[in-house]
Design a protein around this nucleic acid. Structure first.
Lengths: 328, 328
DNA sequence: TATTTCTACTAAAACGTATTAGTAAAGATA
DNA sequence: TATCTTTACTAATACGTTTTAGTAGAAATA
C-alpha cells in the first residue's frame, strides 16, 4: 500500500540506509553527495512518502505519544483541560491518546493496559476510585505519570492539584462577607479526597464561626430527577437557609434546575459554585464561584510530565495551583 | 525495560514462536502441549508482560486506532460527540487518537500527517475550511474517511450530517407558529456550507411568507466583546424585531450576554438556537432550539467507518440524521 | 523393519525503520 | 609506489512481533 523505504531504495537503485539517512537530514553527516540527496528528496516528495511511525517508534524507542486519561472528555472541565494539554504538547511534537474512564475501574484498567502496550511515553491521569493498583502498574513499567485533580493518598506520584480546602474556605468567607449567615453545603456522596476536603473546610468554618452546618450529600449516581427532588425537599425542610454552596458546578446546575422546576423564577439567596461554568455570569442572579485555572493546571501537568520523560523519573512532588474567586 | 517475547523465550528455554503462539491463544492449533502452555502462561502472568503494540501493529498491519479530528475537543458539541465515539469504538476494541484543529489549516495539516504516519485505520473528520487537499491525501493513502458536520462539496467522501436547511426551516415555522412575525437571524460570517444552508432556509422562508429578512453576520474571529456590541447596536437599529434565531448555540450565548449587559433582565421576545445547550432549559425565558442528536450522529460515523475498514473502501454516500425541535 | 503419520515444537522470514560498522574507489602523502 | 585519508556510500543488525514452513523424534502402519 504505502511505499516503504525499501521500495524507494530499490526504485532509485540505492541502499535503504541512504534513503533513511537523507530523509532524516543526516545526509551531510553521512557524506551523502548533494546530487544523491536531491534525487532522494525529490522522489520522496513526488510520491508523498509518509514514514511508518510504528516502525520508527519501534526502532527508536520513542512513540511521541502521551496518554491522557480523564473521567469524561465531554464534560466542561475535562474537555477544555484536554484542549490545553493537546495544544501544549503539540508544540513539543507530542500527540495525545485520550480515553474517558466514565468512573468505571474496568474501563480504566483496559485503557491503561492499552496505553502501556502502545508504549506511550508518559501518562496524565485524573484517577477515579480504586485506581491505586493501576497507578502502581504504570510506575512499575517505568512510564512517567502525572496525576491531577484527584489522587490516591497512599501512592506516591507527581500530583498536580488545587488547594481544595483553602478554596472552600475562601468560598465560605466570601458568602459570609456578602451577608449569608446560614448557608448550606450541597455535595456528593463520595469519598473522593477533593470532595472531602471541600466539605471539611466548610465544617471547620462552621465550627469557627458558630454557624450551624447543614449538609446535603447526594448519591453520585442518579443525579438527574431523583437528585432534583431530594434537593427540593431538603431545601424546604431547612428553613432559614440564606445561601447554598455547591461543591461542583454540575451540582449547582442541578440546584438551578430544581429551583426552577419548583416554579421559582429568581432566587431569594445567593448560590455559589465550586468550578465555573460558561453561563454562570449571565444567569439570574449571577453565580459566584471558585474557578480552577485550567491553563496553569494543564501547563503544570505537561511541564512536569515532559521533564520526567526527558530526565527520567524523579521522586514524586506535589504541585498546588491556586484558584480564583470569581465574584459576581 | 519491558520484557520482550525474546527474553521470555530465553528464560523459559523455548522458542519465540512458542511464546507468541501461546500468548495469542493459538497453542492448541499449533499443538503446543498443555504443560508448556501453562508454563508460559504462568510466567507471562507473573512478570506482567505487556506486548508491544507497535511491533504487533507492524507485524499485523493493524493499529487498532482510529483518528478523530474536530475543531475543538473542549466545546460543548465536539466534546460529548467525542465521548460517544470513544465509547462506541471501545466496544469494538478500537482506540481514539484525537486532535483539535482550532480551525487552523496548518494544525490540520500536521494532525493528518501524524495520523497517517501512525497508521490509523480510519479517520473521522469535521473539516474546517481549506481542507479539501488533505482529505484527498487521506483518500490517496487508502485510509477510510468519514466526514461529519461539515463537508467540502467538491470532494467525494462518506458524509454524515444533519439536514441544515430542513432544520432551519422547521425553526422558522416554529417561531412563526408562536407568533413571531418579524424575527431576525444572527449568523456567522463564514462560508461553511452548513451555515449557508441555515441562512438560505431563512431567506427562503422570508420570501415565501413575505416576512422582511433581517440578518446580522458576525465575523468568526473576535466573537467576544466586539460581537456583543455589534449585536447590541444591530438590535437597537432594527425596531420591530420580535424574535431572534441564532444559527449556533455560541452565538445564542453571545446574544444572551449582550442583552444582559444591556441591563435587560428578561427578554421581550423569544430566542431560538441552532444546537442545544445544557442550560438553555433553565434560562429565563427558556430557549427553544434545534437539537443535533449526538449519539445517532456518532453511531453513524462509527458504523460507516468500521464498515469501510472491514470491507474496504466503498463509494461515498451521504447519511442524513434528522434533528429534534425542542420547544420550551 | 521400512515407511508413513503424528506430536510438539522451532527456524526463518517479514513488517519498516534507525544506526553503526564497514568498504571500494579516489585522492593525498611520503 | 606503497600507505594513509577521505569520499560516498552500503551491509548488517536491531527493535518486538506474527506467521508459515520445516523438523526431530515417537508412534502407528504395512
Amino acid at each position: 500500500m504505502a511505499k516503504s523505504i525499501k521500495e524507494i531504495a530499490r526504485e532509485l537503485n540505492v541502499s535503504k540506509s541512504t534513503v533513511s539517512l537523507v530523509i532524516n537530514h543526516k545526509a551531510e553527516q553521512a557524506r551523502i553527495s548533494k546530487e544523491l540527496e536531491r534525487r532522494v528528496l525529490d522522489y520522496v516528495e513526488k510520491i508523498g512518502y509518509k514514514p511508518n511511525a510504528l516502525a520508527k517508534s519501534l526502532a527508536t524507542g520513542r512513540s511521541n505519544t502521551i496518554g491522557l486519561i480523564v473521567e469524561n472528555i465531554g464534560d466542561s472541565f475535562f474537555g477544555p483541560f484536554a484542549l490545553h494539554v493537546e495544544e501544549l504538547l503539540r508544540k513539543k511534537n507530542y500527540h495525545v491518546l485520550y480515553s474517558s474512564t466514565l468512573g468505571d475501574p474496568q474501563n480504566a484498567q483496559d485503557i491503561i493496559d492499552f496505553m502501556l502496550e502502545k508504549r506511550v511515553e508518559g501518562i496524565i491521569l485524573a484517577p477515579t476510585i480504586n485506581l491505586e493498583e493501576h497507578q502502581r502498574k504504570i510506575l512499575e513499567h517505568k512510564v512517567p505519570l502525572v496525576v491531577f485533580d484527584r489522587n490516591s493518598p497512599d501512592i506516591a506520584t507527581h500530583y498536580v492539584h488545587i488547594d481544595n480546602g483553602d478554596s472552600s474556605r475562601k468560598a465560605c468567607s466570601y458568602l459570609q462577607s456578602i451577608g449569608c449567615k446560614n448557608f448550606g453545603l450541597i455535595t456528593i456522596d463520595s469519598d473522593q479526597p477533593q470532595m472531602l476536603a471541600r466539605k471539611d473546610a466548610y465544617l471547620k468554618f462552621c465550627a469557627e464561626t458558630g454557624m450551624q452546618s447543614r449538609i446535603l450529600q447526594l448519591p453520585y449516581h442518579r443525579l438527574k430527577q431523583k437528585g432534583i427532588s431530594a434537593l427540593q425537599s431538603w431545601v424546604a425542610k431547612n428553613v432559614g437557609l440564606d445561601g447554598l454552596f455547591f461543591t461542583t458546578n454540575y451540582l449547582c446546575i442541578l440546584g438551578l434546575k430544581s429551583l426552577r422546576t419548583e416554579g421559582r423564577e429568581g432566587f431569594d439567596f445567593p448560590l455559589f459554585s465550586f468550578d465555573d461554568h460558561e453561563l454562570f455570569d449571565i444567569l439570574n442572579p449571577k453565580i459566584s464561584c471558585i474557578q480552577q485555572p485550567l491553563e496553569p493546571l494543564a501547563k503544570t501537568c505537561v511541564r512536569v510530565l515532559l521533564k520526567e520523560i526527558d530526565r527520567g523519573i524523579s521522586s514524586p512532588k506535589e504541585y498546588v495551583i491556586s484558584t480564583n474567586l470569581i465574584k459576581r
